[in-house]
Structures are given as C-alpha cells and as structure tokens.
Design a protein around this nucleic acid. Structure first.
Lengths: 209, 209
DNA sequence: GCGGAACGGAACGAAGTATTCCGCTCCGCT
DNA sequence: AGCGGAGCGGAATACTTCGTTCCGTTCCGC
C-alpha cells in the first residue's frame, strides 16, 4: 500500500463511521426505525451495513455500547474537576449534550447485552454515583443517586425536530432541574430504588416502550 | 325496560367506558400499540371496538379529545384557587396526575384533528397561559408559557412499569421542576417559541416520534 | 318464540421489514 | 495488463404485524 489508506479501502473505513453516525441519528429519533433507514441516511446500500454487523440487534448493541463508553468518558472527565458541584454539573451537561442517555437507556431491551457491556454499565454506575455523592452535600437531602437517572431521562424527553435547538432546550431545562435539585424543602414521595431504575436492562422486551 | 338499564344494553354501555379505559391504558403505554391490544385489555372482541369507533384513527382522536377536556377541566378547577402560585401548582399536579399530557401531545399527529378539537386546544392553551401569568411573578423572570409544556413533557417521561409508582415519581420530579422554576439565577439558552412547542399538531406525521 | 342488537374471533389483504442474494465495480497485487 | 476478490447497491424473499371485514352465535326485549 502506498499511503496508510487509499481508494476503496479508505472509503470502506470511512463508511464505518458514516454508518455508525447514521445509525446513531436514526435510532436516536426512533428506536424502532427500520434498518434500511440507517442505510439510506448513511447514503449506502444495505449490504454495507450487513457486511459490518450481523444484524439489527448487533448494530443496536454496538451503538448502545458506544454510548456507554461515552458516558464513562464524560464521567471520568468531569470527575477531574476539583469542585464537587461543578464536577457533577459538568457531568450532567456532558451526558445530556452527547445525548447518551437515549442511546443507552432507550435502546436497552432491544438486544441481549454482552458480558462486557454489563461490566461497563456497572462501572458507569459507580462513576455516576461517586460524582453524585461528592455533590450531595449541596443538594436537598432526600436526593439519591437513582434520581440522577430520572433527571437524565427527563432531559432526554425534551425533543423537537430541530436537533441543534433541542440541544439548547435541554441545556435550559437541565439548568432548571439542577436548580430544583439544590432547592430546599421536602420532596414528596419516596425516592426511586435501584430496581425501579434498572428495569429496562433486566427484562427482555418490556411492554412500556 | 324495567330498570333504567339492564342485561345486554347495560353491558354494552359499560363496555363504552371499559373500552375507553383500556384504550387509554394501552395507548398511554405505547402509542403504536395495535388496536387488538385494546380489545384484549378490555376483555372484549374486536367487534365491540369497531361497533363504537370507525377505526383506529377515530379511537385515537376520541381519546385525545377526552384528554383535552380533562386538561381544560383541571385548568378551570385550579384557576378557582385565589392563591396565584397555588393555582398554578395545583394545575400542574392535576395534569400530571391525570397523565393527560401523553394523551394529548403524544397522540397528536396520529390522526387528523376535528375543528372542535382545535377550538378546545386553543381554549386549553389560553387557560394554561392565564394560570402561568398569574404565577409568573414568583418564578425566575425568563420563564415563559411555552416552558410549561416542556415541563409537562418532562414529567410524562418519568415512567416505569408500575403505574402507581410512576404517578408517585412524577409528583416527586414535578416538585423538583417547580422548585427549579422558582430558583434565582439566569437560565441558559433562549426560551422555546410557540412554534417549537406546537410542531406535533401541525405536521401530519413528524419523523421524530 | 322472534327479530335484531351486540359480540367474539377467524379470515383477509395491505404494509412494513429483517435478511439474503446476485451481479457489478474497481482496487491492489502480481 | 489482468485477475481475484473485497466492497457494495439494491431487488427479491420470506415473514410478521395490523387494520378492517365478515359471518355465525348469543341472548335481551317484546
């Protein structure tokens, strides 16, 4: 080979990321989207997809796993901040910004997870909890780590057709939520339990999409 | 007839509400649910459904319109409260409690609305804005009426398999959101516009489900 | 008893969709 | 120069899923 990559091989490699990006966009918009929509979005044929992934489930799993890795990355990066609350805030902003929550949570249950994924999920959880605990003293006392998941879920629900604007609006409402987290006063109703949060990962295909 | 209603006729009338309730539950859990799921949930045959509704769209429309009426009812009821903030809070709690938001917003676009529905939607909007304006002085200044819709959307996103528990959790996070609404400090990013909020009603079938 | 309202549920037909397959292109190496 | 095959596009296949229709049955009300 002359250059590191050239011609066909280069194109193929570029497709790797093109397809993944397309899949990300498509499945972010609709988890039940047909696989053909991904190919269309990527501007490739269906073959290019099946050459890389064994099937839809495989693609979904890869996508989700990537999301998990991004989540971990954001958490680690944010954890470096010495200011406890700033670290937590930065973490939340990072996760919301990357729209990772939809990737991980909303796709869960559409495939059977790898053992490695379970491990990564556990690690992601630990990191998030650590970040939470550090910031906890500055929150209302009843807040628990499981709340973080729900907060992220709520941010992910903010969604309009314009993607860039969606990101803006999410930042806006994340700010509202975080301010709410720091407010005083008692919170009604008991906090969510771990089991209540993780139900998506356990069931094969929960009814409530 | 001996009693106001008896036997078959009574059963039929009871089915009216049974079916609607079933439809409510089923489509609340999954807007794309098959119509047969509704019949199953209601414990009736498909015929019982088609006897009452011209088709799926008709059922969806009815369901949505009912939601709209409930929304209006909650707003009117809450508006009677002389305390401005209490009225607003009560309104939000009522809407969240009734899970009306999913009924109206998430079902929009799956059918072509009636003229009457448009009118009701307009009225619902007015009422909500009035409630908001009354409470506005006690919120952070940048809050706008369109924020209310988004807040409700976020509450609707809180969802776990256990229905009763879901209601509890929604109350919890609504409290967080409302506290966040009253917090001080500037909010990042411009507020949503009316158009950004109402996109679901205008497009025939938006891509981002 | 009879007529028909109200049903249950099988049957039908139209979509939609995951996956396979076949033929074509064009790079990379000899 | 040419060949082997990686990479690919997209039609064809084989199902599955649903909305809707239809027909036979039940049983109330007169």
């Amino acid at each position: 080979m002359t250059s590191p990559k050239a011609g066909r091989a280069r194109q193929a490699e570029r497709n790797n990321v093109t397809i993944l990006a397309a899949a990300r966009e498509v499945f972010l918009a609709d988890q039940r989207a047909p696989i053909s929509a991904v190919a269309e979005r990527a501007g490739v044929g269906i073959s290019a997809l099946y050459r890389r992934y064994a099937g839809k489930e495989d693609l979904l799993r890869t996508l989700c796993h990537d999301g998990l890795r991004i989540f971990i990355g954001e958490a680690e990066e944010a954890a470096a901040d010495p200011d406890d609350w700033a670290a937590f805030e930065r973490f939340m902003q990072g996760v919301v910004e990357a729209d990772v929550h939809s990737l991980t949570v909303h796709l869960a249950g559409t495939f059977t997870p790898t053992e490695e994924m379970r491990a990564d999920a556990a690690r992601a959880n630990e990191l998030a909890i650590a970040l939470f605990e550090r910031a906890h003293p500055q929150m209302r006392a009843e807040a628990v780590p499981a709340d973080v998941t729900m907060l992220l879920e709520m941010c992910a629900a903010v969604r309009i057709p314009d993607q860039a604007r969606t990101a803006q609006l999410r930042r806006r409402y994340l700010a509202v939520l975080l301010d709410g987290l720091r407010a005083g006063g008692a919170l009604p109703e008991p906090a969510p339990t771990i089991a209540e949060i993780n139900w998506r990962w356990s069931t094969p295909k929960p009814e409530t999409e």
